[in-house]
Every structure is written in C-alpha cells, then in structure tokens.
Design a binder for these strands. Sequence first.
DNA 1: CTGAAAGCGCTAACAT
DNA 2: ATGTTAGCGCTTTCAG
Lengths: 328, 328
Amino acid sequence: MSKRVTIKSIAKDLGISHMTVSRALSDNPNVHAKTREAVVRRAAELGYVKSAAAKAMRGDGTKIIGLLLPNIVNEFYARFANTLAEACEEGDYHLIIHLTNDDIELEQRSLQRLLEVQAMAAIMVPAPGDPGESLKRLGSMKIIQLIRQRRSDKPTASILVDDEAAIRDAVIHLAGIGHRAIAYIGADAALSSGRSRLSAFKSGLLASEVTEIAELIHVGSPSFEMGRSCARRILEERVATAIVCGGFEISNGALTALLEAGKGVLEEVEFVGYGDPSFYAWLMGGISTIRIPVDDLAFKAVDMLDGDASSGRLVSFPAELTVRGGVS
Amino acid sequence: MSKRVTIKSIAKDLGISHMTVSRALSDNPNVHAKTREAVVRRAAELGYVKSAAAKAMRGDGTKIIGLLLPNIVNEFYARFANTLAEACEEGDYHLIIHLTNDDIELEQRSLQRLLEVQAMAAIMVPAPGDPGESLKRLGSMKIIQLIRQRRSDKPTASILVDDEAAIRDAVIHLAGIGHRAIAYIGADAALSSGRSRLSAFKSGLLASEVTEIAELIHVGSPSFEMGRSCARRILEERVATAIVCGGFEISNGALTALLEAGKGVLEEVEFVGYGDPSFYAWLMGGISTIRIPVDDLAFKAVDMLDGDASSGRLVSFPAELTVRGGVS
DNA sequence: CTGAAAGCGCTAACAT
DNA sequence: ATGTTAGCGCTTTCAG
C-alpha cells in the first residue's frame, strides 16, 4: 500500500521544498517555469490529489452544498435536485443530499452533519414541526428555505411559491363548470403553506358562492399515503364531484387512488393535482394541476448561493393553474 | 462574528487541557465523571461541532459516499438514489451526488473531486466511452459499477442487470400475438449493455422466426431525445407494428413520441418499454415493460459498501418482462 | 485521571 | 525564485 501522495512527498522526490511544489501546483507566478513543469509532471505521474480536508482545516472553506429534501422520487424534488446538481457540476461544487422524509429529527441530524463537514450552504425544504433550540448556531452555513418557510427570529433566505391565486383559480374553474361539492386534500397548519393553501381554497369557494362542506376538507401531515387514503374516502362517500390537492405527495397519492378506483369513477370526479410531473399531461387525457415553476426555483437557489451572503432575502414565484383533459 | 468553537476553545474556557475535552467528548473512560459532565454541558452551550476536516486529515477517513448518475429525474435513477440515500441517513453517511449526463469527461472530473474529499466509495453508472489513463489511481476509494460495466484490467465490483432473457421474452411475446415487424431502439456498442441487449433482441426474433429488418433497428447514444426521434421516425415509416426499447431514457423518449402522435397510432403500435416508472402502469391502459428490480440493486449496493473491502465481486439481478395493457 | 508533544496536508507570511 | 515556520482541529503516544 503506497502512502498518500502529498506536496511533501513530491517535494522530497524532487529534492525541493514542499512550498515550491505548493506554489507550482496552485499557479503561483513565483516559480521558475522549468521548476513548475517538473513539479506538475511529477505530480501527474505520481497521481497527486489535493486534500480537501487540509484546505478546509485551514479555513479556506469547502465547496460543499447541502440539499435537504423530503425525498427524491417525487418528480418535483427530483427536477429541483437535478437542476441544482447540474449547476453544481458547473461550479465545481459538491452536492450532498440528505433525505428528511419530512421528519424534523432527521432534518436536524442532517443539518448537524452538514455543519460538521463545513458545508457552505444548505438548501432545505423545512420539515413540519418545531426545530427546537438544539441547532441555533448555524455558524457560517447559509440556509435557504425552499417552498415552505419556518417562522424564526432571524429572517432566513427563502424561495417560496405563491400558489394562493392558482388554488383559488382552480376552485373557481371547477365551480364554473358546475361543481358544487368540491373536496380538498392538503397539509395541516403545522406548515405555513398548509394554512395558506387551505385558505386559498376556501376563498375560491367563497368567490364562486359554493358552499363549504366541512366533511370534504381533509388536512393532515402531507404524504403519499395520506393523499391516497383521503381520496379513497372521498370516492367512497360519493359526495364530492371534484378534488383539489394542495401538496406534491398528496397529489400523487390521491391520483393513485383515482386510478385504482378505475374508469367508472374517473369520469365522475374532476381532479386538480399539485405540481406537474411529466406524466400528468398524458394520464386520463391530461390531469389538471397547479403548476410550480421548478426550474425557476432552482435557478434562483443557485443565484442566492453565488450572491453575496446577505441572508434574509425572500422571493416568491407564482404557481399557475393548468387545465387539461379536454379529450377523454 | 464569534470564532469557531473547538476543543481548544472549550478547554481554555474551562481552564483544562484540550486533551481532556477531547476525551470527554469521545466517551473515553479515562475522564472523571464530573469533568466529563462539565465539558459536555459547556460544549453544548457553546454549540460545539466537531470538525470532519480535522478528522479526515488525521487519516480517520470520511463518511462520504459518492453517487455518479447520468441524471436524477429518470425515475429509475431517482428511486435508486432515494433508497441509497435512506440507507445513508441510517448509517450516518453523507451522499454526494454527481450528475454525469453520460459524459465521460464530467464523470472523470466528478471522480477526481470525490477523491479530493476522500470519499470512501463511489457508486457509478459508467458513462459510455474510454476513461483514459488519467484516473488510474483511485487510492482507497472503492468503486462499484452500476448497471453497466467497463472492461478494465482489475476487476471492479459491479451490480448489473441480466435483461437478456426479458428482452428475448418481449420479442417472443410480441411475435406470439402476431407482430412481424418489430422495431428496436437501444444503445450502441459503446456500452457493453448496448451490445448484449441488441443481441438479446435479435435472439428473440430468431427464436420466434420473425425476420430481422435492419431498418427497424435503431442504436445510438442513449438519451431521451434519441428515443423520441427514433420512435418518431418509426411511426412515420408505418412499417413497424411494435417497438421494443433497451434503455431508461430511450424508453421514456420513445413513449413520449407515441403519446405525442396521439390516439390513432397508439392502437396500431405495441410498445415495450424499459424500466418501470410508476406511471407506466396507468398510461394508455398500462405500458408493457422490462422491469428492473431497482430496490434490490440499491440494497445490494449498500451491502457491498458495508461488506469487506474485497472488490471484484459481481452480482447480477434478473430483469423481468411485465405485460400490461389488457384493457384499452 | 490529566497533560504535553507531535503530526496529518496545506498555505500565508516571512525569511533568504 | 525558493525555503522555513507556524498553525488550522483533532487524536495517538508517551509522561506524569
């Protein structure tokens, strides 16, 4: 087992000082061209790899960016991660992905570990719940909150989605084509987004003078299973003629319930999803949905990463109702 | 800006040696219980975070695992990454994801950077092409090749898919229901998997005594766009009555072409995809496909990570033909 | 039980 | 243009 190749080992090999090697390898002008060439060649021959650890320990920082996501199979998160990762390749960053499964404890653990490796920034979809005091000190790690925002003393940089208008539009659209019993499945008040989406839904009902039916409003911890079981219940009750979803996982879960229920039901219940996985356009003649501009969010995130460290900025991108399903 | 909290700063604060702090914080028995308690409390108060860099520099290794994927939006890769990431959370590993976009240069760069951070292992889907000499020395980083395998001097650990039987079955199935003009879209010979899948396709034709039509066999660098354009061409030519795909991206691309072509065509052309995104089951009454057991692959990868460092093992999981679309 | 010294790989700041 | 020193945060080794 040959030992690690370091600037020192190269220096010894070449009979020069390790500083010269360091300089040669980092394009410092103060090296004789000939020396530099020799060093560079020998380094390549020996298979020298610079140690990120040593750099980090000197306080030069790392090129590590953390990404905390509930999961990465949901196409929205996958697309976000993909776009971000591409940007990272370009900027020579490392992207560390941590899955939180919307569990606050996992989230805190992940942040802690990101701190340990001195990640320069963490982009996170905050999990529902109270983070507690445990992790007040984020040191120099910049935090960017995505989609959801945690109320907190110091203002954090946030990239949010303004989906209230779109959700309202969805309800108004449904009412416009005759629906009078419109169900809603969304996150509960543990998330600010849960609250605002529900109120947008209600505001839509109000605007279209459709009666709010308490039994048709389902809120809870947002997940695929939650969406599926709520939708199943709604279908069984046979009261609602339309369903509006307020959440990525929920939408996929609810849609699955519809698909599982089969043809008969599909034609009776109008569905408005949340997020726009590629296949929504093709399923059942096209699934209507609240579109979120994923790439815009991702680009903005990159932007905030590059930009000055001034935290506290907050941007919001409008969601948009996409009506589909003209065919059948 | 308060400086970083280190064992030394804690030691000074407490008026003891930094060694005692180190011991206390790493559960070394040789510390007076009272001292330990004081240290632990103070560390928590101050918000101490241990430095992964310092540890790494001492040669204690890192808890970093690299994952090199063409992209992460394709549901197969997303699922693999998701399962792997969950395992990483459990084992307190960091998962660094690098997107190669099937570009060998990006791949080499990513590996290089993984080396710099002293990743303990890299799980990679090798990009087509020749890696060249540049990166012979992987040091202590264990490499696990996924899905595809690069021919190389030293045997690398590999997790492969044995899809030849399934592809053969697909052709035989199509022939069995009457198809005589079966098209194929797959990767070219730059990938060993490309070669073997194509030969499986041909073997299927042979077995069912269906004539091979050269014009209906499309190979090239595997990508969504490639799949889409080949499928479009096939549809335009109106010769083929069935299409078999040999690749994840290709399958989604080709399917998109079919969907874009609209209803008329859908009923004329039988489609067998590759990989099994969740929506295949629901689209067009169910898309037939070559199923790959993603989670099995992911679990195996975790397994190999944990297992002894003995590289060179090679496992292969069988793919399976899933026929769907009875309805319409 | 506690402490002092050394060294992991690297570079900024001074020497030469 | 090149060399020396020191120190980043940590643990191992050897002394108390």
